[in-house]
Design a protein around this nucleic acid. Structure first.
Length: 560
RNA sequence: GCUCCUGUGGUGAAAUGGAUAUCACAACAGUCUUCGGAACUGUCGUUCCAGGUUCGAAUCCUGGCGGGAGCACCA
């Protein structure tokens, strides 16, 4: 439709002698203005030396002629907008298209293989709500990409070696712990270790040494038989700690609706990364400074980044290089999207600049995106201070809250997850989310459950109406706003894909649900006028809401 | 100090350079002999400041002021 409008306007503009003028076909903010609006008359005003309204007078009849019976009205309004209102016929035609389960999908990226990395919690630390934010946004990115026809591979990358690991293991070794049973124990040990690192010089020295040592024994773990008893115990603790952490993460990811195709660890990437770094050092891309191997970002207007510390341990950047190579080996893809918290944008800029010099073809595939932080009204979270809210705590609390009205635990969980995800997905991905743990989450109004509830009620109507629901019938009146809103869904998806903006979908679904609720309150559906037609609208609403929720990864309960 | 991000009703957010800046929460006033009230209807109230670009600016540019993040050997 949009294309037809664009074409008709462009042809007429050419005829008028303003072929090069660019204009927009957009949706009026207010639906009362119509379904599409064209600003070509204003845009061409200067080029043609005529007032906008006069140009609009010439464009409008051409548009009406081109659209024929699909346009119920082509009107000139305001400073020179041309507003187009779809005819009932055109809207009904689109509503029928919703019966296809693929409603909203497109094939813009069919055949592409795209890897999406997100979540990235670190073993040996508890998973806090920041990681949950990444998981929720990442999952919706992945689904949006799937809706463009591409094959998506999800991966997560965790730091299983490095200072945070040494901090936790140092505490276990100090306390003579020989086995690890729960993620909670690990979280506690990490906090203690992190505090000791800050407070005691002696502990700091020991932890740094342990860190280097862990790199060493992990790299040589095949030779475990030759290890000292102490090293064997350490290696066991490291393996067990990682395993326990990962089991906990998987459980939370499952609750959040994410399953990964690949899990990568730092320990898999260090060797590849170090080799590449030394190679780059030989080639002069990287250089030595104070015993460390660094990249001088200044030459590209950035800052210096350390790749290998003076103690010989790799940093995050080196591991990222190793990871890029590892991914290429395990699953070569056309494009790679990496989602991290915003605080890492600076690092990624420098990393990508360096990587461009090291492996340009690989670097060109990588796209970095950032998600905002979940901030507490009570101040910044810090594992060290112990005021973090873990993902599990938050989910448990929400499930309890949702359970008040939902005796069925599955439904309570769906509502809780829906509320959490919506809170995260309603704002633009990069912006921070302020979360008040006291007030908890909204289950009413602008919320996940609002969408879920709208869907449940609509399904309930269809159930009650029985098989007649599928009957085709046309209404004689003008289309409902609800119907007109439904027709926009595929374009909303396209826009969200192009801008990596799931919040546009969330916002759209909220408007859609709101229109549905008004429709529901004002129109008698079963037993009312045009029952069959209205039931068709209900079906179209259901399909749109279902597909939209799916893209966001918000569960759709059967009842609530 | 340098770099990046950001400033929208009391609060939290939305707005591809478009029309009267949208939505929710809160507050207030209503709707129910209902196809499920986690709902609907209404009232109240907003673009940090100063310039500039544009037919048109919350949006783009410049300069201020406020907030956040990052600035080698953490991730």
């Amino acid at each position: 439709m949009e294309e037809r409008i664009r074409k008709a306007v462009a042809e007429k503009l050419e005829e008028l002698g303003a072929a090069e003028v660019s204009f927009a076909v957009e949706w009026p903010a207010d639906m009362a203005h119509g379904d599409y609006a064209v600003n070509a008359a204003m845009a061409a005003s200067k080029a043609l030396g005529k007032p906008p309204r006069q140009i609009a007078e010439e464009l409008a009849p051409a548009l009406q002629a081109a659209l024929g019976s699909d346009a119920a009205g082509v009107e000139i309004a305001g400073p020179g907008f041309i507003n187009i209102t779809l005819s009932e016929e055109a809207v009904s035609h689109i509503l029928i298209a919703t019966r296809d389960g693929e409603w909203g999908r497109n094939t813009d990226q069919a055949g592409m293989r795209i890897m999406v990395e997100y979540g990235n919690p670190n073993p040996f630390k508890e998973m806090h709500i920041g990681h949950a934010t990444g998981a929720v946004i990442g999952e919706s990115f992945a689904r949006l990409i799937e809706y463009s026809g591409a094959t998506v591979l999800r991966d997560t990358f965790g730091g299983d070696v490095g200072p945070q690991v040494a901090k936790a293991l140092w505490v276990f070794m100090r306390d003579g712990v020989t086995d690890i049973a729960s993620a909670k124990e690990i979280g506690k040990a990490y906090t203690q270790g992190a505090n000791a690192y800050e407070e005691s010089e002696e502990a700091k020295t020991q932890i740094d040494a342990l860190n280097t040592h862990i790199y060493d024994i992990v790299a040589r773990q095949e030779e475990v038989a030759a290890f000292s008893e102490e090293d064997r115990a350490l290696l066991y603790l490291w393996q067990k700690g990682r395993e326990v952490s990962m089991e906990e993460f998987e459980e939370i990811f499952r609750l959040l609706g994410t399953t990964y195709d690949y899990t990568f660890f730092d320990s898999d990437t260090t060797k590849l990364g170090m080799d590449a770094v030394y190679d780059a050092l030989d080639k002069g891309v990287l250089e030595k400074s104070d015993g460390a191997i660094i990249y001088r970002g200044e030459k590209k207007g950035l800052h210096t980044l350390v790749f290998i510390t003076s103690r010989g341990t790799p940093t995050y950047e080196t591991k990222d290089i190793g990871l890029a190579f590892l991914k290429e080996m395990r699953a070569s893809v056309d494009h790679e999207l990496i989602l991290t918290a915003v605080e890492q944008v600076g690092h990624f800029k420098v990393f990508l600049a360096a990587f461009e010099d090291i492996a340009p073809q690989l670097a060109a595939k990588i796209e970095h995106a950032a998600h905002g932080l979940l901030q507490l009204t009570t101040g910044k979270m810090s594992s060290r201070k112990g005021n973090v809210i873990t993902a599990r705590e938050l989910i448990t609390e929400l499930v309890t809250a949702a359970g008040v009205r939902n005796p069925d635990p599955l439904v309570a969980q769906q509502v809780a997850i829906g509320a959490l995800k919506y809170m995260i997905l309603r704002s633009a991905p990069g912006s921070n989310i302020i979360f008040d743990p006291e007030k908890s989450l909204s289950l009413e109004g602008d919320s996940g459950p609002y969408l879920q509830y709208a869907l449940v009620r609509a399904r309930s109507i269809l159930e009650k109406a029985g098989p007649a629901a599928e009957a085709e019938a046309k209404a004689t009146e003008t289309p409902y706003e609800l119907s007109r809103r439904i027709t926009r869904f595929p374009e909303i998806i396209r826009k969200a894909q192009a801008l990596r903006a799931p919040h546009l979908v969330a916002q759209y679904l909220t408007q859609l649900a709101s229109e549905w609720n008004s429709f529901y309150a004002n129109e008698r559906i079963i037993g009312g006028d045009n029952e069959a037609y209205k039931l068709g609208v209900v079906s179209a609403f259901i399909r749109t809401m279902e597909n939209g929720l799916w893209v966001l990864g918000i569960p759709a309960p059967e009842k609530m």
